[in-house]
Design a protein around this nucleic acid. Structure first.
Lengths: 414, 414
DNA sequence: CCTCTTTATTTCGAGGCTCGAAAAAAATAG
DNA sequence: CTATTTTTTTCGAGCCTCGAAATAAAGAGG
């Protein structure tokens, strides 16, 4: 039995999370608002907010919007205390590392973007660079080091959430890099490492909850092809790895050579290197390019738009590959809204028709056939925000253990 | 926020479930045993068991194994009270309906198997037959009608768990059959309708927990091809339909005609009708046979074993289709143990080599490559047991609301 | 300016729950 | 018949949520 035994304090923990979630979603809320949002009784909200204020997690903001000029005792607005904690995020992508410090309200404190030749970088090079960047940010912002409470990392590649390890990545030759362990030891906080696509899904859920609520998929079309999936309101994680490797579903048995070493993966037809390989007239078994610059990719796209030729055919192949993957995905989980993210979303016009044709009629027995797709050509802001939300939600779930918080900020290591 | 607000009684509900789950797994347990198994304190177990006994859900079984001849106060064995509830299961398959009455301990009370020409049966014909069978069983066992508390139905086809509806099925022309609503109205109990493959997965989890615990897939190879999936110890359900339609993942774009009306589904290569179609030298766009009898399928299998020809080639194609689906599935969820169930499992020797070849190296980045597959040629006992466990676990989750039970058995309708 | 009304928040008691410690039960050992 | 051992129940402490009543803090109105 996986089932855990329930204790009375679990109830408080869960309801505290509800209160914090409400506050995170709306910034300024009176206790009455919280009652309305959560469904908890006024007495319970009072008890919980009193404790949160005493622990410094929440502040009363008297100057805030006082719903003024109404009769009766005025509501007093509550807000998360931005200074109670600092979190750090790390985005690691091809030739790029981006670290940011956020406060507990999710506001940027400091950041650094650094270009790194990741393809030639060892695991040590990468961790060294990341630590340098983080050290610099923490040093520049006095007090932030002492308040650092969590780090979230989104990486291009396959990760293992449980051990916070990057198992494999196209951006560096080294495998099984235990980023979590290393950063955790150095900064004395817990670390989450996940695929960048999971982070994108997390971000979409927060920035556009109307479209991305319970069930949806975010597909990153870039150097590689990945997916972040939400099902029943929960992130879908693989058994071991943290991401659903959409790009490595099988499109054509014994087909084109994929960067992962196998043949026929969707990625081998739909990623930027696959499109350029086909456009250049190379054999589909030719070794994939390690790095494709945006300029040449866009040039090919422009040529595809201007005339019907090898370029346009390559994009159509890509659309078919993605569509084929979606058809299989939808067979397994039923159709869900799709967010296309990254450079590939910028050329959606070139792949849409073929993609839709293959997907159409996904549910042969007559389920809703309409496929909704939205495009987000720039993946970086989403990855960043996803990392941030991951860390903050982690805090919201940890700060629960009442009384725990008082000690936590002192437990730093550096 | 999907999050529900927690109340103090939820704690008791959860812990009651733990106690019942322990009892369901071991039949005879003393309170001390339950303490050991659940981790609850002795006082809590005492409180919970006292209530369960008062409500008639659990019995003391003094005669039971008294761990005799030891010093100290003897343990008194507890056991589920078989008479507190009756449940009914319905398996609906091609030309077959099988209804069974079980007691609360999962022992068969009565059953009937009836051959029905389902292909020519309307929704009304089917429900009428099922109700007749259930009525007969309930009438034959005095008292059982008054104790009937749940019905579980496993059907070949696509189902919607939420509305307990069969959306589409290959065994009958009618669609959107609301079995749940109909049976629920007639018998006054709640009804679960799910794909037969989900039931198989549920059964495997209980009959062989050592091999099928947290993550595994049960694939039914029969007239159609379906899958029941467990991930992280929970049944995996689609967004709308209750099953993961493995058989309708895309194997070959614009490929062979599938019974679902689309082209290129795995099923169009690996189901019995697909194999016979190919063996007979028919075009792969030929209309699928509605019904394939076991004898001719086995004859083809025997011929495939005895000589290398069209038969063997057809099975190899089937193995490739299944392997291709597994490769894609494993990309999404990481490799899991597989149970092959049904007639197709009886010819595993003919498909294994091709299946494994395509799946091999599923995790390009070096995850555990070994693929474990076990075969269960007879699917019916598993479907039956899965239905039973579904109903019983439902009761274990409903009998929680303390005091609820006293009224429930009277709330019958018939 | 003082009282009335209205709305927000806190306080208080009832009724749950789990748990550890102590008490009670029910056997064997001698 | 008493001592010992083991199981089970009882009791009090310390959680939790909730509804009702009490308290706070405004505007409205004479």
């Amino acid at each position: 039995m996986v089932d855990e035994i329930a204790r009375p304090d679990d109830v408080r923990r869960q309801n505290r999370r509800l209160v914090l979630a409400a506050l995170r979603g709306h910034d300024l809320l009176s206790r009455t608002d919280i009652v309305a949002q959560t469904g908890l009784s006024a007495s319970t909200v009072s008890a919980i907010t009193t404790a949160l204020i005493a622990e410094g997690i929440v502040n009363e903001s008297r100057d805030g919007d006082v719903t003024a000029n109404r009769r009766g005792r005025p509501q007093v607005a509550l807000t998360l205390n931005p200074e109670i904690a600092t979190i750090a995020t790390v985005e690691l992508a091809l030739n790029l590392a981006h670290t940011v410090l956020f406060d507990y309200k999710g506001q940027v404190i400091a950041q650094e973007i650094r270009r790194i030749p990741t393809l030639d970088a060892s695991a040590g090079d990468l961790t060294r660079a990341i630590c340098e960047m983080l050290d610099g940010l923490l040093a520049a912002m006095p007090g932030s080091a002492g308040r650092l409470m969590h780090i979230s990392m989104g990486v291009q590649g396959v990760t293992d959430a449980a051990s916070a390890t990057m198992l494999w990545s196209p951006i560096t030759p080294d495998i099984n890099v235990a980023f979590g362990e290393i950063l955790s030891a150095r900064y004395g906080v817990s670390v989450a490492v996940a695929n960048d696509c999971s982070m994108i899904a997390e971000a979409l859920r927060w920035t556009d909850p109307e479209h991305y609520a319970e069930d949806f998929a975010a597909i990153l079309l870039s150097h590689g092809i990945g997916m972040g999936l939400y099902l029943k309101g929960k992130p879908f994680l693989g058994v071991q790895s943290s991401g659903a490797e959409f790009g490595h579903m099988l499109h054509v048995p014994n087909g084109a050579l994929c960067r992962c070493g196998r043949h026929g993966c969707i990625e081998a037809y739909a990623s930027d290197y696959a499109i350029l390989r086909r456009t250049a007239g190379e054999d589909e078994q030719a070794q994939p390019a390690q790095d494709v610059d945006a300029a040449s990719f866009n040039a090919v796209a422009d040529r595809a738009r201007s005339r019907d030729g090898a370029e346009r055919a390559a994009f159509r192949k890509a659309g078919q590959a993605i569509g084929s993957g979606l058809r299989s995905l939808f067979s397994l989980i039923d159709p869900v809204p799709i967010a296309l993210v990254g450079p590939g979303a910028g050329v959606f016009d070139l792949i849409e028709a073929d993609l839709r044709e293959i997907v159409s009629g996904t549910t042969g027995w007559g389920g809703k056939p309409d496929l909704t797709i939205r495009c987000y050509p720039d993946e970086h802001p989403l990855i960043l925000q996803g990392c941030m939300m991951t860390s903050l939600l982690h805090l919201d779930t940890q700060l629960f253990a009442p009384g725990d918080l008082r000690e936590a900020p002192l437990r730093r290591a550096i």
